[in-house]
Write a protein that binds this DNA or RNA. Structure first.
Length: 569
RNA sequence: CGGGCUGUGGCGCAGCUUGGCAGCGCGCCUGCUUUGGGAGCAGGAGGUCGCCGGUUCGAAUCCGGCCAGCCCGACCA
């Protein structure tokens, strides 16, 4: 590739609408351009990276026995109605009709269609199977952000496995787990696998691969001893027991004029510190008002509630709904004496006595509440959000909480889709068996963003050799110097002949412009060919990572650079 | 969906308060000089001022509505 002919539109200024480093640098470096919110075009340099990332994924998928497909991005609504997701998935699913008034949708993922294809599997002898493709998804996200980190249209490698039984699924799941580690290692990403919520995908078990980053959108709790790691949407921890002082009498009314918050109540009464309080939250679950109880100093993690209840139709109750049902406004709510609705309580509250909670009467609370005696808990459910420093559930060490980017997610699906769509085989006894499925995703663009988030400095991107748009740039300091151009061309041809992905910067620009662009675009190695060094029979080889520059004889440079590149691929 | 901010040549911005020729820097084109860290001089091209409506002799500027984008939150496969 010759830079003079390439479309690499680098920008001198940061784009006004970009804050995340990856977003800023990918736009400035001429890799991507925004079309609309959450929708990006890949320019030639970006496409080179995209292709290398995709290729690494392909290689590792093929290595564990994956077979590549390519499925359509527009699906008939009918199939999604059969799995229930036509109605269950709200908001992000774009639905439309064709000229014959047929319901269609834009694929948000491809379980349905791969499972339809799997109905052609008829015998256990055809299992296990591992199928994948790299294909566009469109999810009408309410809030795209941070460039490629969260977009609406993106390409994902999604794979699907088909097995006779759960044990087979476990094997394929573990293979993916290993393959994903290899993939992220080749991307230069340090990942933490964490237990995750399966969300609407359904299924029994899922693992997310997370890269710690400020622009991440997920919180993860990590044990410093490596004994535990989980997404906060699922994480649990040990909480030190609170010793309650005795209070044998029934709850006593406590006048609390004007007090509406946990903090205000804690400040007003010595015996009502936040851990002594029961926080009462009102939700509407499947249409019914439901109380959710956590300790005063704890936060509800709504996703844990969603997962624990196995429902998607859940929202905080409106103030008027709360007043109609309980007779008080938020700020004075409590579950004591409530018997006509579901009461979900966090297990941390189990056995607690002498607590303070709202009296369901504005300006009044109750003290001396014994949870077991005074509250009719219908479900004990771990719904609290883990906070930094709480004890690891395995070893007790203080947990660390970090924000992270989810770069991959693997699910054990079970039989949800195969059952709904009739994917079955005959086993060795001639009996019909529903296929056990798993699904596994890696977003291409999000991984590119994560790589840049991790590998950049104030000058630009520092691509790992494995995914760099070009492994080497040959920078010609003075293009109208015949000797320079001749030497540079020879080096360029020699590197290309050695299998190095190389670009020659033959633009008639001043050296400063070319050096700056090379650093912004982020090629791992720069070979600088200029008249001064050439007079000594050498050129300079600069490592983008370290900025170390080495003078190398012209005759050796192709071998030296080709070797350096090869060892880092 | 709630809150905040922003829409002016390709990019970054000023002008808007107080209505009166649409500007600056970068980039781009031509010429000359220059050439090891974002060159200098001279000349030049390029804009429905997000859109629609209103007020006014006159609107980038004031008023109303809409659209789009970014950030925070909600949400998130």
């Amino acid at each position: 590739m010759r830079w003079s002919n390439a479309f690499i539109p680098t920008l001198r200024d940061d784009p006004a609408d970009a804050e995340a480093a990856s977003h800023r640098l990918l736009v400035r470096g001429g890799f991507i351009r925004r079309l609309m919110a959450g929708s990006y075009s890949w320019l030639p340099a970006g496409m080179k990276v995209n292709t290398k990332v995709s290729q690494i994924i392909r290689e590792e998928m093929d290595r564990i026995g994956g077979q590549e497909f390519l499925l359509p991005v527009v699906h008939p609504g009918e199939i999604w109605k059969r799995t229930g997701r036509w109605d269950d998935v709200e908001g992000i699913l774009v639905k439309f009709k064709d000229r014959r008034d047929t319901d269609l949708l834009l694929a948000i993922t491809h379980e349905e269609i791969f499972t339809m294809l799997a109905t052609e599997l008829t015998s256990y002898k055809q299992l296990p199977a591992m199928w994948y493709h790299l294909q566009t998804k469109f999810r009408d996200e309410p809030r795209p952000r941070s460039g490629l980190v969260r977009v609406r249209e993106f390409v994902m490698k999604d794979s699907y496995t088909f097995d006779l039984d759960p044990a087979g699924l476990d094997v394929q799941f573990d293979r993916h787990y290993e393959a994903y580690h290899r993939i992220f290692e080749r991307f230069g990403l340090d990942v933490v696998p964490v237990e995750a919520s399966s969300g609407v995908m359904g299924g029994t078990e899922s693992v997310e691969f997370m890269v710690a980053s400020d622009v991440g959108e997920d919180g993860i709790a990590i044990c410093p001893n490596g004994d535990y790691a989980a997404n906060l949407e699922r994480a649990t921890s040990r909480v030190a027991a609170v010793a309650d002082e005795g209070w044998e009498e029934p709850p006593e009314r406590l006048a609390t004029p004007g007090i509406r918050t946990i903090a205000e109540l804690a400040a007003a009464f010595e015996f009502a510190r936040a851990p002594q309080q029961v926080k009462t939250l009102a939700y509407v679950v499947d249409g019914a008002l439901t109380l959710v109880l956590v300790r005063g100093d704890h936060e509800l993690m709504e996703q844990k509630l969603v997962d624990g209840l196995g429902t998607q139709t859940l929202r905080p109750a409106h103030p008027d709904e709360i007043r109609d049902a309980l007779g008080a406004d938020p700020g004075s709510l409590g579950a004591v004496g409530v018997s006509d609705m579901r009461i979900i309580a966090d297990p941390v509250l189990e056995g607690r006595t002498n607590m303070v909670t709202g009296a369901n009467e504005d300006d009044w609370h109750l003290r001396g509440v014994d949870v077991a005696r005074d509250i009719e808990v219908t479900d004990w459910l771990d719904v609290r959000r883990v906070e930094p420093g709480e004890a690891c559930p395995v070893c007790g060490a203080p947990l660390v909480v970090e924000t992270a980017i989810e770069v991959g997610h693997i699910f054990k699906l079970g039989t949800k889709y195969s059952e709904a769509l009739g994917a079955k085989v005959l086993d060795e006894h001639g009996e019909e068996r529903v296929i056990w499925m798993g699904s596994y995703g890696i977003g291409v663009g999000r991984n590119v963003a994560a790589i840049v988030e991790v590998h950049h400095d104030d000058k630009g991107i520092i691509w790992p050799v494995s995914v760099a748009p070009w492994e080497v740039v040959v920078t010609v300091v003075k293009v109208d110097d015949g000797a320079s151009m001749t030497a540079a061309e020879r080096i360029y041809e020699g590197l290309a002949a050695s299998g190095v992905d190389v670009i020659i910067d033959d633009r008639n620009e001043r050296p400063g412009v070319k050096f700056t662009d090379a650093e912004l675009v982020g090629m791992p190695y720069r070979v600088t060919v200029g008249p001064k060094a050439l007079a000594d029979g050498v050129v300079e080889v600069t490592d983008r990572r370290t900025s170390d520059t080495e003078r190398v004889p012209v005759a050796d440079v192709v071998d030296v650079v080709a070797d350096a590149v090869a060892t880092r691929r």
